[in-house]
Structure formats: C-alpha cells, structure tokens
C-alpha cells in the first residue's frame, strides 16, 4: 500500500496496483497524444490503439509465443540456479576452491553472451537447448554470488554452537546455512529472473524460431513496427508478472522460515 498525504494531513492508502495502473494509463495517454499531435508515422511509432488492436486480433498467436518465452525463461532459470546454488555453497565453504574458480566465473560473466551465440548455434542448432544455455548463463552469476554472500554473512559463533551440540554437516546445512542464506538467494533469484526474461527474448530473436523474440524478428522482417512494439510490450508485461510472482513466492518462503 502506498500512502498519499492529503492537504489536511490525513494519510490516504491506495493499493499499489492502482497507483501502478494509473501511471501506466498516463504513460499510454502521453504516447497516444504524442503520436497524434506530432503526426508520427505508424512505421516509426505506432499508436497504442494500433498495437492493442494487433494483439486483440491474434490472441492465440501471442499466447503461444508468450508461453514459449515463459517456458524458456523457467527452463533456463531452473538450470541456472541448479548449477549456481551448489557452486555458490562450495565456493563459500572451500576457500581454495573459491580462489581457484572465482576468477574463472568472473571471466565467464564478463564475456558478452551475444558473442557466443553463433558458436552455440553451430554446435547445437536453433531451439530450446541453445537458448536455455544462454538464459542459464545469465542466471548463474547473480545467484552464485548471492549464495556466497549469504553463507559468508552467517555469524561464525553459530557454527561453533552447532559443532558443540554435535551437529553434522547435513544438519548444519539444514538448520544454519540454508535458512540463513535464503534471503540472499531470494534476492539473487529476483534479480536474475528480470535478467532471464530479457535474455530469453534476445536469444529467441537470434537463436530460436519460437517465442516473443521470434515474433519481434518476424515483425522486423515484415517491416511491421506494430508487431515489433506488440512483442516488446508483451515481453515487458510478462516480466512484470514474473517479477510480482517471484516477490510473492519470496515473501511466502521467507515467512515460512521465520515461523
């Protein structure tokens, strides 16, 4: 809930979704007026009405593409975190391993993803395998780094206490490492999910024949600016939905662990 101060000092509470919706409406109105007043050609910037009409006349086409992008995002994200979490814990716990591998991880992360696409396409062809590798790659770094930070943030005396109580490595992981690192992990998930959607759409554009990225590419080939803008807007909306869902799941999980 957002609080809005009234002239008399009373505080009004407006639902956050209402505030966001209002801002979006203002943005769309500015866009529509700008297109009309400045007489912008449709092939430079289409009006919001044309874009909405385009989407409304092809619901099945956009739904299929959106589901495809969603599947790629989730598969890539799943693969990325499945590798990043164990690696993050291992690097946080084993100093020599961190010293040996961390520079390599940073090297891989700083490598522009886009430059490895042609090579991946030659090796694996177009499709889910290639694109999900790219998405997983983008997820790996934020999640593994946050995992390391999470484990490092645990006070050392907690480990001392569990050791004196006779807890083994599995119990220590279950009752100390995992719950204490979880807030960091969740934050890493949310950051990487936002990145994952962007990478998913870009990788569909260059290495897949499905999804919203492909729809945008088709728009480019057909010189159809309306289709390109429609694909971009749906991708952005998908990002907002996934981010909201991630926030909700994060709150539920953290609440459960606090209890």
């Amino acid at each position: 809930m957002d609080e809005l101060a009234s002239p008399r000092g009373l505080r009004l509470r407006a639902p956050r979704s209402l505030v966001t919706g209002l801002w979006l409406l203002v943005l769309v109105a500015v866009w529509a007026v700008a297109v009309r007043v400045l007489k912008i050609s449709e092939f430079i910037l289409p009006s919001p009405g044309s874009v909405l009409e385009w989407i409304a006349t092809r619901p099945g086409y956009f739904l299929t593409a959106t589901l495809s992008t969603l599947r790629l995002t989730l598969v890539g994200f799943g693969v990325g975190i499945a590798v990043a979490i164990p690696v993050g814990f291992a690097l946080a716990k084993i100093r020599w391993l961190e010293r040996a591998l961390y520079p390599l991880i940073v090297f891989l992360q700083t490598m522009p993803l886009i430059t490895i696409v042609p090579v991946l396409v030659i090796w694996l062809g177009y499709g889910l395998t290639t694109t999900s590798i790219l998405v997983a790659f983008s997820v790996f770094f934020p999640v593994s780094v946050n995992t390391i930070l999470g484990v490092r943030s645990i006070p050392h005396n907690l480990f001392f206490v569990t050791r004196t109580m006779g807890a083994g490595p599995i119990q220590t992981f279950q009752y100390i490492d995992w719950p204490m690192a979880l807030p960091y992990l969740m934050s890493g998930f949310r950051i990487s999910l936002a990145v994952a959607i962007v990478v998913a759409v870009v990788s569909e554009f260059i290495a897949s024949n499905d999804g919203l990225g492909y729809v945008a590419l088709r728009g480019v080939r057909n010189r159809d600016t309306v289709q390109i803008v429609a694909a971009v807007l749906i991708a952005a909306a998908l990002g907002v939905i996934i981010n909201s869902a991630a926030q909700y799941i994060e709150q539920m999980i953290l609440k459960k662990y606090r209890e």
């Binding site: 042609p118 396409v121 030659i122 090796w123 694996l124 062809g125 177009y126 260059i206 290495a207 024949n209 590419l217």
Partner: peptide, 19 residues
C-alpha cells in the same frame, strides 16, 4: 523445414552438420 537467421548462419549450420 527450419527457418534460418541469415545466409551466414545457415552456411555455418550446414558446415557444422546440424542440418
């Protein structure tokens, strides 16, 4: 039938044996 992403990419895919 697989759509492509430009002649250069298609030539590389054929050369690599993916298609």
């Amino acid at each position: 039938i697989e759509p492509g992403k430009g002649s250069g990419a298609t030539s590389q895919l054929v050369a690599g044996g993916s298609t």
